[in-house]
Design a binder for these strands. Structure first.
Length: 509
RNA sequence: GGCGGCGUAGCCAAGUGGUAAGGCACGGGCCUGCAAAGCCCUGAUUCACCGGUUCGAAUCCGGUCGCCGCCUCCA
């Protein structure tokens, strides 16, 4: 029954506190996440946000919640118009192209498709209707074909970002839009007049296009109603984007709050060396030009390694993108897949397999009884605490270690041993499903992981296989000197070999 | 100037009142023809610093220092 689903706790950045998450309708979650303005390839800051909410989406459904997850594409925006003009292409075509690129990258990362992915260009009517409502109620005003939100008309303005209009220094960031048309410097555009050559739609205020913030209000309310259970996005959207969404949405609907929980994902930082040779860690951003595209990162690292890396830090904290961290994550993925591979081999040795012919239960070795029995609960508890993925990974590591320990022996396993391995393996797989890792067959996963490094070093796997075959021959002849020489040769190529009863496997160092 | 966050072992990183998870690196051992992989053992009397509250604080309060983010492009 939906009423007795496991409760979870989430940190709400509006109230700056963790509190029990209670959807308005028991068991049904309305979640809206701000997507990307599609005028370029995504960077890994975007990827982090997508991964975080993907895990939340997976976890809620894992617990049995019914989740209505809406994540938008902003396909009408001045940055898109600018880029399209530079390239001499149609803005919507440009946007669609980058939506396709985004889908490709996020698909590779194993991001599950949200329930709805609305586009601004397909919701112009809703945006105009909301603007009309705001103008009629005095929260917005028309000025020479533009429509502006009147921030002073909304008492709660600043409640999310905890700032007061009078405390803010207009122009502090050097990005204030000069406009004589506005009544107040912080009034923001709901609708912008379009010049003839610009994209535009007819409206009560003439031909124009939506401003930046209004689309999220209009589209979230279209699909999820006046009050969202969860609204998420990157931390840098708190002000002004989410602040403005609150002002628009609450003023338009008369309902408060617009969202019960605000979740904000920490920034991805990048370490750089200054001209003085100093190491500094700064936020990755387009304007600083220090960003890595998702595409580039996936060219060098496995998608599951990228996900693992993202899970090593709490989603609210900043994370530093660095090669060493991605390499460590890669190593951990290899460790986890190796544990699964060992489990499969042990089951096979006993005449069973995990899929069609599992070992009979329910008896489990005493040593692992607690772990097998409590794992699911402990794992859920970790994630139910505001998505504590580092803790979840610690538990995953615990199961993998137990699995490795339980598969130390080369002997044929007893029924009890095999069933223990089978259960531990199952837990590891289930845990992986929620985090979006370990979704490949172990052999496949390991092959993919090493393939990226193979490519990086421009090595031919066939050559490696040949050398391993030669070494096998030498070992059968007990020509240890030759066998070791071949191994050293492989080692210099960065190839590490592992002998086991089932034969020799290898991986990239 | 305003608002917010962070500072935990060599490195990464959980823990927010009950006596410091986990990972990487390092060292020792088991296994191995030798290795690797895997397994076992090993590391903070201590959580930036100072003071306070408390039977008890990394966790709460006050102050100091350092770093970062936002203040209408930003995930």
């Amino acid at each position: 029954m939906t009423n007795d689903l496991r409760p979870i706790t989430l940190y709400d950045s509006r109230t700056h506190k963790k509190r029990p998450f209670e959807p308005q309708q028991p068991g049904k979650v309305k979640m809206y996440v701000c997507g990307v303005t599609v005028y370029d390839l995504t960077h890994i800051g975007h990827a982090r946000v997508f991964i975080v909410f993907d895990v939340l989406y997976r976890f809620l459904r894992h617990l049995g919640y019914d989740v209505n997850y809406v994540r938008n594409h902003t396909d009408v925006d001045d940055k898109i118009l600018k880029r399209a003009a530079e390239k001499g292409v149609d803005p919507l075509e440009l946007a669609n192209r980058f939506i396709e690129e985004l889908d490709r990258d996020m698909g590779q990362l194993g991001i599950q498709t949200p329930t709805v992915e609305p586009k601004v260009s397909e919701h112009i009517d809703q945006i105009i209707a909301m603007n009309q409502k705001l103008v009629e109620s005095g929260h917005a005003y028309e000025a020479d074909g533009d429509v502006y939100y009147r921030v002073e008309s909304f008492e709660g303005y600043g409640k999310l970002s905890k700032r007061k209009l009078e405390d803010m220094e207009a122009g502090r960031s050097g990005r204030v839009e000069e406009s004589q048309k506005k009544e107040h410097p912080f009034d923001f555009a709901l609708w912008k007049k379009s010049e003839d050559e610009e994209i535009g739609w007819d409206s009560p205020w003439g031909r124009g296009r939506p401003g930046w913030h209004i689309e999220c209000s209009a589209m979230s309310m279209e699909y999820l109603g006046d009050t969202l259970d969860i609204h998420g996005g990157g931390r840098d959207l708190i002000f002004p984007h989410h602040e403005n969404e609150i002002a628009q949405s609450e003023a338009a609907s008369g309902q408060e709050p617009f969202a019960n929980f605000w979740m904000h994902v920490g920034m991805v930082n990048v370490a750089e060396t200054t001209d003085e040779g100093e190491e500094v860690v700064r936020k990755m951003s387009k304007s600083l030009g220090n960003f890595w595209t998702t595409r580039d990162v996936l060219g060098g690292y496995h998608p599951e390694a990228v996900r693992y890396f993202m899970h090593t830090t709490l989603y609210r904290n900043p994370i530093t993108y660095a090669m060493a961290n991605l390499e460590e994550a890669t190593q951990r993925m290899e460790y986890l897949y190796t544990a699964l591979q060992r489990a499969d081999k042990v089951l096979e040795r006993g005449g069973w397999d995990a899929a069609d012919n599992p070992p009979p239960g329910p008896s489990v070795s005493d040593k692992y009884w607690d772990l097998v029995d409590n794992f699911a609960d402990r794992y859920q508890e970790a994630l139910a605490d505001d998505l504590n993925t580092p803790k979840a990974l610690a538990l995953v590591g615990e199961v993998a270690k137990a699995l490795n320990e339980a598969t130390q022996a080369d002997a044929e396993p007893t029924e009890k041993d095999a069933f223990t391995v089978y259960r531990l393996r199952h837990h590891l797989m289930t845990a992986g499903e929620v985090l979006g890792i370990l979704e490949r067959d172990p052999d496949q996963g390991l092959a993919e992981l090493r393939e990226l490094r193979l490519d990086a070093m421009e090595l031919d796997p066939q050559l490696i296989d040949e050398k391993i075959a030669a070494r096998k021959q030498a070992r059968m002849n007990k020509d240890w000197a030759l066998a070791d020489a071949i191994r050293d040769e492989l080692d210099e190529m960065g190839v590490e070999i592992m002998d086991s009863p089932e034969g020799t496997t290898w991986r990239m160092k």
